[in-house]
Design a protein around this nucleic acid. Structure first.
Lengths: 342, 342
DNA sequence: CCCTGCCATGTAAACGTTTACATCGATCGC
DNA sequence: GCGATCGATGTAAACGTTTACATGGCAGGG
């Protein structure tokens, strides 16, 4: 390994000068600079990142801690963060597939001293991670980031689900099932509450029997779809709290011989790329996932520059309703809903 | 920040002893060890990773360099690598979304000194990355990893596509279109060649007019599907070189009023989780993506332990045909194929 | 022509560890 | 009971940088 000393000796200058050349310090003669650079490239010198970090106390790296999440969501978050980080000369140290708070704790521990800041995406209640963090800047991504005093970027889960609930009600549906995710999952809780709010607005009491448990996988969506198809008075619509489950449910419902949206309408949440290519294309709530990651990263960089920690910062990325064909139009449903008092 | 010195002073021992305690060295008295540990946790001491790296010349981190790839594939690779890395106490430094060889080169440069080894997934011809690498152990993932003398884990692209081609031919299809990916993409080239081989085996000359350009996105699959539906003597089957494009193509074909597999059979490659929930469920070539990542990581760890570089190591992860309903069964197609000499 | 000040460069300390080597008792074999 | 051995601990160098401070030469002002 060629070090700064080698370059200095070879170029006939001191290591300080070489260092200055590689850090664009102003006070070095043009001639010297050019010469050192020539020698440096000839020798194939690359400053040793670790040594540099040790003294500057900056690693130019941010840590990203993720739970065990599924395809599309995962990759988009990373993409957003990475793009943003790279443009600022930062690297990202990723630790994924954490299920328990204990694992997250361990990951945090291990990242200490390797990163300048942390992006944490947890879907379950914050495990009092404050103390662990040391005085490392942290930005949380996702639901339930209230409690703790750390900055957070959140998804408008409640608003999105509320909008979808209203849409379904507007279409004339009254018996609407919902496929949930893990009960600890805070995104789920927020989405569910948004949906219930819509029901209550319409004077409908949320019915626990219509809330089917899922876990955000296609498989659990399929299982819920099977149960759904067999229900006595069958719901006229089902709202899956993410697209993967909606997809699984659609598959199950079709297998049971049901038409979508004719016999039952299906709605999802997230708007993964696949959603629009399904048959029928899926009506869903769009959330710009990569923006979520990018925004969190931006906020973190701000924090790194001026860690004045004035007060906890909150930002909510909006959601929007994407209406496709899996829920039909008002005309399709109206006749049926007329059986009940509106 | 609390350092080893603080612990040493507080515990009344030398820093060497503290260091030994935190490195499980054998030669430290049980009593001392316990005492130091108590003091350490009380003070909240965590060894500084960077300082440790500097002297041990190990970072306990491996770099992962990825091109700009789509959802499922991306997340599964990372998952596989991360699981494998974590179980060995390694971290992963990710740099993704690289499109050009130049970007990859830059990423390699920046990782120098931060990682102990590198996992590189490039889909285009190797940009003579050998020299850049310094003497850093490297394992390549994916197609065309022959040329360079580095270790590589590959997908059985040729065999998989060959099997799918034979299957389609077995079902009686003779005019089979194929949706390709970027022409530089080596996975594409291998898959395409496998498919052509199947055709030739059956005495059919590959027809360039039946090879539609795509770029591995759902969108490009959709576009190809549109063209396909409009073709004069319409092909009876289409083989998309990845599932995302198959999905897009199915959507377009259906929009054009075609039945799948009645009017046209559709096959994919990868077996992403979504594939089995499509309507009809997609016949495809399964590749265990997370195994790809995990195997590459395993190989890298081996290399890190004993960098004897005996000779370039090759490993191919197998593929398997997954037959679902999007291509129908032999009976469905036989009548039509009887128009041609078998 | 001398002093002041500035610019380019060099010297050396520091960052937080690990580890080879030295030291110091105590135990053990004879 | 004495040297050899061994186990526990301490001392200090080293890893490859950055940077405060020192140095020295040279220009410009008086």
């Amino acid at each position: 390994m060629v070090t700064i000393k080698d370059v200095a000796r070879e170029a006939g200058v001191s290591i300080a000068t070489v260092s200055r050349v590689y850090n664009d310090a102003l006070s070095v003669a043009d001639e010297t600079r050019a010469h050192v650079q020539r020698v440096g490239t000839r020798l194939g010198y690359v400053p040793h990142a670790t040594a540099r970090s040790l003294i500057t106390r900056r690693t130019s790296t941010i840590g990203v801690i993720l739970p065990d999440l599924h395809g599309e969501f995962f990759s988009e978050i990373i993409r957003g963060v990475d793009m943003s980080a790279r443009s600022r000369g930062y690297h990202i140290l990723v630790s994924s597939s954490h299920s328990s708070a204990e694992e997250v704790r361990a990951a945090l521990q291990l990242m200490r001293g390797r990163v300048d800041g942390l992006l944490v995406l947890t879907t379950e209640p914050h495990p009092a991670m404050q103390p662990l963090v040391g005085r490392l800047p942290v930005v949380r991504i996702g639901a339930g980031a209230n409690g703790s005093g750390v900055d957070a970027i959140m998804v408008a889960n409640h608003a999105g689900a509320l909008a979808m609930g209203r849409h379904l009600l507007f279409l004339g549906h009254r018996r609407i099932a919902v496929i949930t995710g893990g009960s600890e999952n805070l995104d789920v809780q927020e989405r569910l509450e948004g949906f219930r709010t819509a029901l209550r607005e319409a004077g409908i009491a949320p019915d626990p029997a219509l809330e089917l448990a899922g876990d955000f996988t296609e498989e659990s969506g399929y299982a819920a779809g099977v149960r759904l198809a067999a229900m006595a008075p069958r719901p006229t619509a089902v709202f899956a709290l993410n697209d993967s489950m909606a997809l699984g449910a659609m598959s199950a419902l079709r297998s049971a011989g049901l038409e979508i949206p004719g016999d039952i309408a299906v709605a999802g949440f997230d708007d993964i790329p696949t959603a629009q290519y399904l048959e029928p294309p899926l009506t869903t709530v769009r959330v710009d996932i990569s923006a979520l990651g990018a925004r969190a990263a931006e906020r973190l960089f701000l924090l790194l520059q001026s860690p004045d920690r004035n007060q906890a910062f909150r930002s909510v990325v909006p959601t929007s309703l994407v209406i496709r064909r899996s829920c039909g139009s008002r005309a399709d449903v109206a006749p049926r809903s007329s059986e009940e008092p509106s």
